[in-house]
Amino acid sequence: MTFMAALVGGLIGHYLKFPAGEMVGAMVCVGAMNIFEAEPQMPKLLNIGAQIIIGGFLGLDITSDVLVELKHYAVPALLVVVILAIFGIVTGFVVNILTGIDLYTSLFGSVPGGMQEMIILSQSYKVNHVAVLTIQTVRRVLIVIIYPLLLILVSKATKTQIASNSK
């Protein structure tokens, strides 16, 4: 029953094109079951299987082209990782101090990595997974809305233009 609720919720989220809609939709449907005391359960083996499958999908992005380009972009990539990690940690501490949210929940919610990856990684720790999912979802939606506006501001401030792929 729980798996069917997750499947239906995931398909609805996918169809509605929500950010990470499959994960959010499944979570909402199973969460609703929990709220209405239906006592949903999932075998631990499915969680392990889901993480293995997601790891496989992430591995699909590692190609020979990526390895060839790595020599050109290794230093910038490492610089980005270090800077974002530092800002993520600082943000996590600030959010923890200002809101009282558990520190490690705040750190997982503040990390600027891929939303799905961070939520799955957070499952390996005792943190508030609903809070991590909520913070990451809001972050992702707002970035999709705000970042293009910031690019316009950068374009105007630097008197340069960013090329568009739209036809």
Rank of each mutant, 00 (worst) to 15 (best):
N165P: 01
G59D: 05
F36M: 07
V141R: 03
I86D: 00
Q51P: 01
K17E: 06
V82P: 04
V90F: 08
V138P: 06
F57C: 09
K44F: 06
E39R: 00
I62Y: 05
L84W: 00
I53W: 03
T105A: 09
I143A: 15
D61T: 11
M42G: 06
G109L: 03
M4Y: 05
S155P: 01
V130Q: 15
G109M: 01
H129C: 14
I97D: 04
K44E: 09
F18G: 08
S164C: 08
M33W: 00
E37L: 07
Y73A: 14
N96W: 11
F87D: 01
V80S: 09
T158K: 13
L149K: 08
V66I: 13
H72K: 10
S164A: 12
L151W: 14
V68D: 09
L16H: 08
S164Q: 12
V111F: 10
Y15R: 09
V68T: 04
L150P: 07
T99A: 10
I120P: 07
I54N: 07
G114C: 05
T91K: 00
E117T: 14
Q116L: 13
A157F: 10
V75G: 07
V111E: 05
D65N: 15
V144T: 10
N47P: 00
M33V: 01
M27R: 04
P112R: 02
P76F: 04
I146W: 03
V8D: 01
G92W: 00
E117S: 13
V28Q: 02
K17V: 03
I86H: 00
M4C: 04
S64D: 14
I83W: 06
I120N: 12
